[in-house]
Design a protein around this nucleic acid. Sequence first.
DNA 1: TTGTAAGCGTTATCAC
DNA 2: GTGATAACGCTTACAA
Lengths: 334, 334
Amino acid sequence: MTIYDISEKAGVSIATVSRVLNGSANVSEETRQRVLDVIEKYEYTPNAFARGLGLNTMRTIGIMCADSSDLYLAKAIYYLERQLRENDYRCILCCSGYELDTRRESLDLLLQQKVDGIILVGSNYIYGQAAQNKYILDAALTTPIMLLNGALDAPNVYSVLCDDYTSVQEATGRMIASGIHDILYFYNSDSYSGKRKRSGYLNAMETHGLEPMQEFFAGNHEDISGMTEQLLRLHQNGQAFHGLIAADDTLALAAVKYAQTLGMQIPDDLSVIGYNNSILAQCCHPELTSIDNKLEALCQHLTDTLMDVLTDNYGIKNTMFSGDLILRGTTKAL
Amino acid sequence: MTIYDISEKAGVSIATVSRVLNGSANVSEETRQRVLDVIEKYEYTPNAFARGLGLNTMRTIGIMCADSSDLYLAKAIYYLERQLRENDYRCILCCSGYELDTRRESLDLLLQQKVDGIILVGSNYIYGQAAQNKYILDAALTTPIMLLNGALDAPNVYSVLCDDYTSVQEATGRMIASGIHDILYFYNSDSYSGKRKRSGYLNAMETHGLEPMQEFFAGNHEDISGMTEQLLRLHQNGQAFHGLIAADDTLALAAVKYAQTLGMQIPDDLSVIGYNNSILAQCCHPELTSIDNKLEALCQHLTDTLMDVLTDNYGIKNTMFSGDLILRGTTKAL
DNA sequence: TTGTAAGCGTTATCAC
DNA sequence: GTGATAACGCTTACAA
């Protein structure tokens, strides 16, 4: 079934069928109905490729992330897909991994597919050195690039992120105010937002004249046992801390397991604050106090901005949301 | 840049450029090189829409799932996307939700996008009544349909799943053999695989002449606190059990929290077995014994089969893998 | 209000 | 080997 078949059966030209299909006003109600009847009768649907060629768009958005099975990224993808679908856009998912080379490839893939926009999900896309971000700028020459949890000042690049710095700074401050002074910062990434979180912690400690303690975990993002073991080694080496702020709920969960392994009471012997307020926060007993970075709101804003850019060729360049500390059982009243 | 521009600059016809582009043998090495040079110089890439129209494919596969942020589904999507990309296919992600109506819509969306195949991820897509599965059969008229963790016997529909029945039956049997006779089955879905898991439990209990205890959780899939509370209510009502088999790691985790809340020792006072062997299994202390259903292997087999179908129009219709019980701290030696 | 015809940028079938 | 040229199925001026 093509538009020709329909036009023939309805006794009109293909232009008229096309007009009906695209809701053009310049069609008499009578012919419109006649055409619609034929379309329905034969269950005709326009050929998406032909339409794409004619309109130079198939209404698709590329969603790129390092690893779509990551709890946090998966949630972001979920929100974005739903919101884009509501705007009649389809999503092409592309997991780029964490290497620069594979990221370039992934981005090229999406550009070749001629998507209308590309969303980079995750702060790890922005590197410290400008040269490493060049492939993003190149892509932006062709297609609007949206950054979720990253920032890059360039034409046709739009950023939406959460104020990680302030969130962690305030959380640390509240823990200090509750009387805990030996607080360990436990992290596993020095990405754009990773750096900002850590700065927040450092600033809070310095402000209160306290000595910072930082511990970096280099292993796999999902290796909770490995994280726990690393903390246990710290303990064996005599490093004491009664508070722990984690850059991620996974790390915080490892801290809870660490305490349980040693028979410590939470929050009396150890207070823990996580980040992301993911489902993991509910997974332990007591439940995790965690920083909520408003992912759904971030995604909604990003989608809205992208729609603005796509229609008006203009949108808000940078937006920063503020996070919320969600209090649960791993901290005393802060 | 179009193929015309390139042909002009290279001093050949568009046919020759197209031949070079598609690796046709009938081009002299000299012209091939000349054309390639021009292509490289101008960074030309063929227009995907035009190519799609000509070839009637853009090499895309639709991946449909109820909720891509679900831990298990997210993992499946991750594997599938990677494997499809290796085969030079792009993925269009579409979250359909759990309602029949929205599923129909989602499937239509993918068909209209003219994907080359559709993967339904999750056992919940297959309903008990044939009429409810009709929309899948209709889609299969046009496009091969792959079922991950579901089975449906129909033309152009292919199924890959794990033997949930046997996995749960054996796990239950081993728990019984370890001396635990009052075992609760905790579940939250009566989907295709949900039913099979439950049957496995029931069969094992009956075989050993034990009275089954089943508890259904009707709330949100992520509401671990709600699940924990439901178990606590059960306890308050005097229902005793020293073993618990869960249809999902989330439910198993709730069981661990339930025990911790009551001050029970795991596994001495309560043994727990989960399902999926997801990251959640690592999240509690002690860690979850869980049934691994070989998701990556399932996905790989599904992708391979789909590639077979796409190239030869023929592939293995039904495949069943067997699961593994991964022993960890929530059970005594089984 | 409707129809004609020219794109859109490929692939593929012919000739030569 | 290479080059015309006809599909592919739509959108959209431009005419009528």
